Simulated assay, not measured.
Amino acid sequence: MEFQIEYWHWVVFGMLLIMAELVVPSFTIFWFGLAALLMAALVWLVPDVSLSVQLLAWAIGSSLFALAWFKLLRPLMVDRTQAGIAREAVLGESGQVILAPQPPRRGQVRFSTPVLGDDEWEFICEEPVVIGDRVLITEISGNTLIVKKR
């Protein structure tokens, strides 16, 4: 009796690999599981494919998926918010005043790239500023930025 790999074997194998990603959080095993699901579709469409061709196609598919993830997709997902960055890293960041301070209300500044997780912050400035002025962060006091006119 000869053992023949069926499409559902690849489905089970792929799902096991994808579930293994829950235990091993490296986001690499996922791509091997995805290639196995692709092999399931191939074997379902063309059931006469030999085991060696299936394994070769799975290895190539896994490699291509992993390469696409690490070289194409992952670089696009870089966190540019600077959330969780030390406060010293945001000192000197430049933003534009969108609401001038008028006592007792503080001003609002907007940054092109989010700073500490937000792109708009309340600020205090010792110099008079108007809407449209550029300011630099000199200090952080709680939820308020201390800025100086650029």
Rank of each mutant, 00 (worst) to 15 (best):
T113V: 05
F30M: 14
V24I: 15
I140L: 14
V24M: 12
A89D: 11
T144Y: 06
S94P: 00
T81W: 09
L51G: 03
A86W: 06
P128A: 07
F32R: 00
E122L: 13
I85P: 00
S63Y: 13
I140A: 07
L38G: 15
L116A: 12
A83F: 13
V147H: 03
A35E: 01
R134D: 03
E139T: 09
L76Y: 14
H9I: 05
G14F: 01
Y7D: 01
M77D: 02
T113C: 02
R110D: 01
I137T: 02
R105H: 07
L145I: 01
F70T: 14
L116N: 06
M39C: 15
V12F: 12
Q82A: 15
F3C: 01
I146Y: 00
T113L: 08
T113H: 02
V97P: 03
Q4W: 05
G84W: 11
F30W: 04
V97E: 07
V130A: 13
T113A: 05
V24L: 14
P47V: 08
V109F: 07
S50H: 05
T81N: 09
L145Y: 04
G84S: 14
I98N: 06
A83Y: 11
C125G: 09
V43R: 11
P114Q: 06
S94R: 15
P128T: 13
L37R: 06
F27T: 07
E126D: 15
V97I: 09
K148Q: 09
E120L: 12
L37Y: 09
L55E: 05
S63H: 01
L116M: 13
E93P: 00
P114Y: 11
V115C: 07
M77K: 12
M19N: 04
E2F: 11
L136P: 02
G14N: 01
I85A: 13
M1W: 06
G92P: 08
L72P: 05
P101W: 00
K148A: 08
L17F: 14
D133I: 05
I146L: 07
P103H: 10
S63G: 14
W121R: 03
V147F: 09
Q102G: 06
V23L: 14
R150F: 11
L64C: 14
V97G: 02
R74T: 07
L64H: 02
V109P: 02
E88M: 13
F70A: 11
C125R: 01
L17Y: 03
V43Y: 01
P75H: 14
L42M: 10
F70H: 13
G117F: 10
I98M: 11
L51E: 07
F32L: 15
